[in-house]
Every structure is written in C-alpha cells, then in structure tokens.
C-alpha cells in the first residue's frame, strides 16, 4: 500500500492523546447497553437486579425462554414467535422485491413529469411516524378480518421494506449504463428480456444488500405487531417484552436472553451474505 502523508496524519501530542481518550470513553459508553444485556442474560433470577459484575454465569435463561416454562410465564410460545417473525419478514421482503425491483427499475430509468414526487412519496412512508397510521390501520384490519394474521403483518411491513428496497435499487439502476440494455434491444431482445438478461444480473449485489436491510428493519419493527397482532401470531419483538410481565413479575434476565436470541437471525443472515453487503452498500458498485 502506498504511504502518503494525509491531512489527518500527525505526531502524537498531549492534545491528540486527550482527544483519543475521549473517543475511547465514548466508545465504551456506547457499547455498554449491549454488554449489560449480555451480562444480564447470563444471570440467575436472584441476581438479575444486582449491579455487581461478580455473579455465577448460567445459560439456564436461554433454555427457559424456549421451553414451556417460558410459554407459561408469558402465554406466548417464543419458538413459534420466532417462526412467525421469520415468515412475516421473509414474506414482506419477497413481496417488496417482486413489486419493488420493477418499480425501482422504472424509477431509475424513466424520467417523467412528477417522477421525483412519486419517489419522494414512496420515501415519505419511511419518514412517517408509525403511530400516526396505527389507529386507522387497527380499525381497517379488524373489519377486513386480517387482524392477528401473517397476511396482515406481511402487508403492513411493506411500509417498512418497500421504500427501502425501491430507493436503494433505484440508485443501482441509475448507475447502470442504459446502453447495455439498448445493445440488447438492437440484438433483437424485447424490453422484458433485455431487463431479465442484462439489467437484473448486474444489480444482484444491490438486491442482496437492500433485501437484507429490509429484513432487519422488518424484524426489528415493534409498533405494528404490537397493535395489529394478538396472541396467535405474535412476532419476537413483542414476545420479548412479554417477559417484562404485564403488571406481574418482571424477568429481566429472561428478557435479555430472549432479546439476544431474537437478535441472532438477522446477524446470521448478515454474516452469510457479508461479501455482497460490503459491495452492495457502497452505491455505484455496478461500474467496474
């Protein structure tokens, strides 16, 4: 690697050491909640509210969360909640991709009167506070009979996943030279085949990255399932909070363990497609 003198490069001085110390301090402070949660998940019931770091670690909590004991405490089967979350989020991402890829392609390729307004509207779904629409949605869901169903959740999660996928993929399609498809048109392919043959394979990294991000956002969503699901199709985000008890006993150690289990699937997905993700998140990666 080339060694160049960069503007930021300097010798150590008392000032710079102090600045580094502040940064390290901030780093520890930011990381603390996560550390605390891991510690908490390893504590026994009796130790859960102590603030001492010395305790006897146990993995018992994780077992409890996943067992009938957990179901008894919260009246929600956590394993089923995990499955529900997977179904909802995968479903939401698939639906978003099926509709979002053509939408992003159109948005990236064609400019027409008001095309920017349409894109802004789509993005504004991400800006809008979920609480704003939750009451009308609750009423609509009840009347349509999709309250506490997977279909209902997949539908509502579109608000989370679709704008993300459309926006990320649009910039991919914009970065991809239109001449590639034009060449395919001249080679005798229809627009649809040109899209499938040329454009789609080139945005694969973008599809992977946006799908993963959408999956994580959908997975972490709390407000929609809190209001729009009952006890049959509770996803993990809601299930986790049940361990805090509804007026009764609060199980902080179990909550922490449940939260850690809930955090696992997105992490695994992210690690498995890390290669795509790094390339995909740096926009414009299509051009060589």
């Amino acid at each position: 690697m080339a060694r160049e003198l960069r503007p930021g490069q300097r010798k150590y001085s008392p000032g710079s050491i102090a600045a580094d110390a502040v940064l390290v301090g901030w780093f520890i402070f930011s990381l603390f909640p996560l550390v605390w949660m891991v510690l908490l998940s390893l504590k026994s019931r009796s130790e859960q509210i102590s603030t001492y770091f010395a305790f006897t670690p146990t993995l018992e909590n994780f077992g409890t969360v996943l067992s009938d004991e957990g179901t008894r405490l919260t009246s929600v089967n956590f394993t089923e909640a995990l499955l529900t979350s997977v179904i909802n989020c995968v479903g939401a991402v698939i639906v978003s991709l099926v509709i979002g890829i053509p939408a992003a392609y159109a948005a990236g390729r064609w400019k027409y009167r008001g095309s920017n307004d349409v894109m802004f509207t789509i993005l504004s779904f991400r800006f809008a506070p979920e609480l704003m629409v939750i009451v009308p949605l609750f009423i609509i869901y009840n009347q349509l009979g999709i309250f506490d169903t997977n279909v209902g959740m997949i539908w509502v999660l579109q608000l989370v996943t679709m704008p993300l996928i459309v926006w990320i993929l649009r910039s991919y399609f914009q970065d991809m030279p239109a001449e590639l498809e034009q060449a395919a048109l001249l080679d005798g392919y229809s627009r649809k085949r040109a899209f499938l043959m040329v454009a789609l394979p080139l945005v694969r990294p973008g599809i992977a990255a946006s799908a993963l991000l959408a999956f994580i956002f959908a997975w972490n969503n709390y407000v929609f399932p809190l209001i729009l699901t009952g006890s049959r199709h509770t996803p993990v985000t809601v299930a986790v909070t049940r361990f805090l008890g509804g007026g009764g006993q609060a199980y902080y150690n179990l909550t922490a363990a449940a939260a850690l289990i809930a955090a696992l699937p997105p992490l695994l997905v992210a690690l498995s497609i890390q290669r795509y993700l790094v390339r995909g998140l740096s926009f414009g990666a299509v051009k060589s």
Binding site: P177, E179, L180, Q182, A183, M197, V198, L202, S288
Partner: peptide
C-alpha cells in the same frame, strides 16, 4: 456503442 456496452 462508445462505452462498448458489452454484457459484463
């Protein structure tokens, strides 16, 4: 095409 537009 000037960009060659070869299918990568």
């Amino acid at each position: 095409f000037e960009s060659y537009a070869l299918y990568p």
